[in-house]
């Protein structure tokens, strides 16, 4: 097997990001974080590049992951959701986004996109979490500004919104 002398974009993958299909050339060492930013999804942040801060969290086939720990070639065929794709029909904010605004959870905002993605996944798995369950759910997303209280408030409030919304649909 011949080895490349330098890193070259020699691989092609197909992915879906926020419901948009991408056919992209990548190189072996490109992380999913690098790729998403290159494709214009700048909400995905470089915080530590070692998987310890969660600023790069996206949903990979529905599960929150640290995109700095994943190489682009690993996600061929996958579906990715970033916070840019969260708003319903691209306009109406998702209830988690609304709740973050209303409770004053974001301060500097750098961790917020990742935190929101983790919260969205958490609430889809556990629609009525306790504060303790929320704290465990976001344990991989570090926030240096908030001390997490308003973040937990926001996720609690989003759970109620989602519950009310779903109840509304049932009527």
């Amino acid at each position: 097997m011949p080895l490349h002398e330098r890193q070259v974009p020699d691989l092609k993958i197909k992915i879906s990001v926020n419901d948009r299909a991408f056919d992209v050339e990548i190189s072996a060492g490109e992380t999913l974080l690098d790729l998403l930013r290159r494709l214009g999804f700048k909400s995905v942040k470089h915080g530590c590049d070692t998987g310890n801060c969660g600023a790069c969290t996206v949903l990979l086939d529905g599960r929150p992951v640290a995109s700095c720990l994943i190489l682009a070639p690993q996600v061929d065929g996958s579906t990715i959701l970033t916070v840019e794709g969260l708003a319903i029909c691209g306009k109406q904010l998702h209830p988690v986004q609304e709740a973050f605004i209303e409770t004053g959870a974001p301060q500097c905002g750098f961790c917020t996109p990742g935190m929101i993605m983790t919260a969205v996944s958490l609430l889809s798995e556990n629609p009525d979490p306790t504060r303790d369950e929320i704290r465990h759910g976001i344990a991989g997303n570090i926030c240096r500004c908030s001390g997490y209280v308003k973040v937990v408030d926001a996720i609690e409030s989003a759970a109620k919104k989602l519950c009310d919304r779903d109840a509304g649909h049932d009527e």
Binding site: V83, Q97, I101, P106, F110
Partner: peptide
């Protein structure tokens, strides 16, 4: 008053508003 931050909407939408963006 407990008003939302003026940049809160942009933040939750992941706007490309930081230096590296």
């Amino acid at each position: 008053r407990r008003l939302p931050k003026v940049d809160a909407g942009a933040i939750v939408k992941g706007a490309p508003h930081y230096t590296l963006d």
